[in-house]
Design a protein around this nucleic acid. Structure first.
Lengths: 135, 135
DNA sequence: GCTTGACCTTACCATGATGGGAAGGTGCAG
DNA sequence: CTGCACCTTCCCATCATGGTAAGGTCAAGC
């Protein structure tokens, strides 16, 4: 099948399929006489794997590792689990950071009347005029 | 003062200070005879504001709005609060998305023995072989 | 005076993952 | 034969940031 149908089936844009090929994440596609790329169910399977990994937030480098582990019948499930838990830790870190931002902002927003007057603890907090929380 | 000291005082790299100037987030700096940029306490204040907003996850566009609101003595605190709450909603969205990823991964990881054997629900889940949760 | 070193200047390239668009070839249906 | 949908490669943009190169400035020390 052509790249368009492969894209539709996997949810990976044609643009990205070509990109994944260019960076070696998927092998060079077969070509028809027209020079159009030609995909089979094996390719679709691999692209689907990549898309699901992307949806779970894995980076391209991590996906490269996952693909290697997928194709390695000798590897132990501990290898996969270790990679996954490392990624979970990255997610936890990001979530924690965003949560801290949210908390700070919510605190500032709570202190802001949000009315027609100009006085605003949010702006004051950003301006760093150290009007602090207690005033 | 020179850009290096401004950087040290504000925690914004010299690189980024020049960048902020180039995109109009801060006004063009005064220049000495040497063509070196020259900063005063007013600039330091503005850069500090920007850095704190960045630390809270605001985008450059949002920061541009915040700076405008900061300088507008006519604006109501409601304007600032609205922008902030919109940003909080963005953060909530990101946190929710990351949380979903984390949950899915944790479920897969829990199902994985993580021993020397190759069988691995994580890889199977990514491969989309629909072995699902219930099997 | 001259060197050294810290600092500054501009300009270009890179990241990661993705999209947009141009300019042109292919293939099928009317 | 025309039109249209699809494909090809190539270049550029995003967002915020860093790196590096090639060169100018300035103060301290010899």
């Amino acid at each position: 099948m052509q790249i368009g149908e492969a894209s539709r089936l996997t949810g990976v844009s044609a643009k990205m399929i070509r990109h994944y090929e260019s960076i070696g994440l998927i092998p060079n596609a077969d070509r028809r006489d027209s020079n159009y790329r030609d995909y089979g169910h094996h390719d679709i399977h691999r692209l689907g794997f990549i898309r699901r990994a992307r949806d779970l937030g894995f980076s391209m480098d991590e996906i490269r590792d996952l693909l290697r582990l997928w194709g390695d019948t000798q590897r132990s499930s501990a290898d996969v689990k270790a990679l996954t838990q490392s990624h979970i830790a990255e997610l936890d870190q990001k979530i924690r950071l965003l949560g801290e931002m949210r908390h700070t902002l919510a605190t500032l927003a709570d202190a802001c009347d949000g009315d027609h007057r100009p006085d605003c603890p949010i702006i004051e907090g950003l301006a760093g005029t150290e009007l602090h929380a207690g005033n």
